[in-house]
Amino acid sequence: MDSFDGNKDDVVSSNNNGNQQADVKEKKPETSTEHINLKVVSADNSEVMFKIKRSTKLEKLMQAYCSRAGKAYGTVRFLVDGERINGDNTPDGLGLEDGDTIDAMTEQIGGSC
């Protein structure tokens, strides 16, 4: 997962050899195809891979994930790098790259112990 994360982060941490190799590998398909693979990881670390067009709204992916995970659409909070994304966003709009991770969090409530 680290090598995937390294794709967008080469400015900050370019000294990691593993990441650099990953970059080289991943860049080829990035330019050659309009589809990218995205990994949706839930809070309990279970992963689901999706292949999606760069210009497709992520709403489709979200709905697919929810139905697959057995959750109601709207109860799952999707985050990229800790920031919320909504259904209108596209992979291109968010600058997502192949292999990037989307976090799928569930509602948290709390009142007391």
């Binding site: 994360d5 309990d44 985050l79 800790g82 920031e83 919320r84």
Partner: peptide
């Protein structure tokens, strides 16, 4: 201000998973 998922992710999955959360 971090969001409410930051702490639980840090606790459950470790630093690497929240490493990019502060890139901006």
């Amino acid at each position: 201000a971090f969001n409410t998922f930051f702490f639980s992710t840090l606790r459950d999955s470790g630093y690497m998973r929240v490493r990019r959360w502060t890139r901006k």
